[in-house]
Amino acid sequence: MTRADAVSRFGTLAAGVAVFLGFAVASEHFLTVANQLTILRQVSFLLILSLGFTFALIAAELDLSFANVASLAGVVTGGLVHFGHSSGLAIAAGLTVALAFGIVNGLLVTRLKIPSLIATLATAAVARGLAFMATDGVSWVGRWDPSFVWLGRGKVLGVPVLVVWSALLAFGAWFAISQTRFGVWLTATGEADEAARLAGIPIRRMKVWGLTLSGLFAGIGAVLLTASLSSAGPTSAGDFLMSGIAAVLLGMTMFTPGKPNMPGTLLGTLLIGVLANGLVLVGAPYYAQDIALGIIILGSVAISASTLTKAAFGL
């Protein structure tokens, strides 16, 4: 590996370590076990949603609906729990709604040939509208079934169960992409769809899969978020759009530069979690995080421009 190669693969990681060490020096609370676990717990929702977004981006499609779909799925799950239905039914309903949005996104892109940028922007608006319609704009909060709340707040051997869920999902996503035929086909579809088609890969089905998984992961994130907050509101996952995109784009600057990849998404998410947490600890104003996210997005896109242009405009 040449030096330039090493910089492009691991440069972001090195910068992340520097940021981490900077916060460790700047705030005495940063390095405590409690705070590190807080970071992991906080990034778990972001990670799960970002993993889904990565699946779609690997197939060269953008899913701008994942955050609003997650809010809607959270409202569906939370509403059913809130009004006394069984947790199982509530979770199944939330996941089904998110899955359905993913499938619809996939069909809009592959059957009606609507660019994913536009299609998912539109379904995002629909999801948001439905979430407000269902809740009348308020959040449901309550003392919910403890077994449901455990999914988001429990601990397994002292480790927050959220961290366990997100680790399992991250492993599953990495495994699917790098070790299975499904992963190579999804990658080939995103990298060179015509070449993939000529090699006999069903590219339309792969694109539907990419967007469907994005929907499904949004649903899983929504269920866990709802359980963890024991509340559900029409915009509860809305903030994850920007930070999720920033995390995945940041991940694209790592390991396999210019390509969306699951380890990159994991580290990108952690970095953004560290940044958010550290900025609070050092007393930065609340808007500093938004500015930082914007800069991260621009900086990452500058590095990975071609892949993103293709995903956004099909070029």
């Binding site: 990298e191 060179a192 070449a195 000529l198 390509k259």
Partner: peptide, 11 residues
């Protein structure tokens, strides 16, 4: 084997 080779350049 097509003119544009039908390969995925980055794979």
């Amino acid at each position: 084997i097509y003119q544009d080779l039908a390969l995925a350049p980055r794979m």
